[in-house]
């Protein structure tokens, strides 16, 4: 549905977006990750046709955004960053306007507004002026606007920003459910959202894509992927790590905590022995034979660590925990 080819945007000499390519199919939820100022919003603004690209192409549903913007825009629902809305209107007035501009009228309009209001839990503020709404409600009002015409493509710029934890949970659930039938791109810098809602994630840094894959694939890039965390009772930390270093596939052993006669260590595999099939964990388990093991856990890899090591390459060595 969405196809982005070598997209670039320069502001003066600053390269906000520099050669970004990806595509999103129907039924996919793409998480857009990156530090602040990485070019997420600029990319989304180009996809939605708000700003023209310096170079490259965007097409939505087969329509080129520069050459044929109107049919392309018709397919898109867009929640801009900071969720702007007309403050001098009521919620229902604002949503009616959004429906009208999407070509809905009469009964269809009423139904569309009703549906959006229900999905975004806005009944209680329907006749309130947008100006008087709390941030969470205002955000959901703008979100409702983006889904009013049941679009095939949804572009959401930080859809959970400013929401409380319950609302965040709800919005993630909503995105995931809608993602089954639509093509969705949403940006965030909350990594748990990637797990909660995305089928694929892209990490963008300084205008370039630095990683692209499913959350599992990204996690596997972490040095935590396949690592084993072990809690042993009655053995000294130094003895534990000395013994574990003898295991061939072990790259590094870190003592996490040592107190009350218990020691917790994390054992990292060598890169070639990630041990996806549990071999590494078995080897560690064998080495630990005879100890009183209270806990043994295979780590899946940590997204936050991947995110940091990718977007802050200089500090890669310091990032351990």
């Amino acid at each position: 549905m969405i196809k982005v080819e070598n997209l670039a945007k320069f502001f003066g000499t600053k390269r906000a977006v520099d050669g970004v390519s990806f595509s999103v199919a129907r039924g996919e939820v793409l998480g857009f990750l990156g530090p602040n100022g990485a070019g997420k919003s600029t990319t989304m603004r180009m996809i939605t046709g708000f700003i023209p690209p310096t170079a490259g192409k965007v097409s939505v549903g087969g329509y080129d955004m520069v050459e044929n913007p109107i049919p392309a825009k018709r397919l898109i629902g867009y929640l801009p960053e900071n969720a702007p809305a007309y403050t001098d209107m009521t919620v229902s007035g604002f949503l009616s306007f959004a429906a009208e501009i999407r070509g809905l009228s009469g009964d269809a309009k009423k139904k569309a507004v009703h549906r959006a209001v229900e999905m975004c839990f806005l009944e209680s503020v329907l006749h309130q002026s947008v100006e008087t709404l709390s941030k969470g409600y205002r955000h959901r009002t703008c979100f409702a606007q983006s889904i009013i015409h049941d679009p095939e493509v949804l572009i959401l710029d930080e859809p959970t920003d400013g929401l409380d934890p319950n609302q965040k949970h709800e919005v993630r659930g909503l995105i995931k459910r809608m993602g089954e039938k639509k093509a969705i791109i949403f940006s965030t810098h909350i990594l748990e959202e990637v797990d909660a809602a995305c089928s694929r994630a892209i990490i963008i840094d300084r205008g370039r894509i630095v990683a692209n894959g499913t959350p599992q694939e990204l996690r596997r890039k972490s040095e935590w992927a396949g690592a084993v965390t072990l809690r042993v009772k009655g053995v000294a930390g130094s003895a534990v790590s000395a013994k574990l270093y003898q295991v061939q596939a072990v790259n590094r052993v870190t003592v996490v905590e040592e107190k009350e006669g218990r020691v917790t260590v994390s054992v990292f595999p060598k890169p070639q022995a990630t041990g996806a099939n549990g071999e590494f964990a078995r080897a560690v388990g064998e080495a630990a034979h005879g100890w009183h093991i209270e806990q043994l856990q295979i780590e899946e890899g940590r997204l936050d660590e991947v995110f940091r090591s990718i977007t802050m390459p200089d500090t890669k060595q310091e990032v351990k925990k």
Binding site: R45, T48, G49, F50, I70, P71, K73, R74, I76, Y78, P80, E81, N82, P84, A85, Y86, T87, A98, I101, R102, G103, C142, Q145
Partner: peptide
């Protein structure tokens, strides 16, 4: 100022 221009100009209108 409100940022609504981004909504307005991404709607299917010229």
């Amino acid at each position: 100022r409100l940022g609504t221009i981004e909504l307005l100009l991404t709607m299917p209108i010229t």
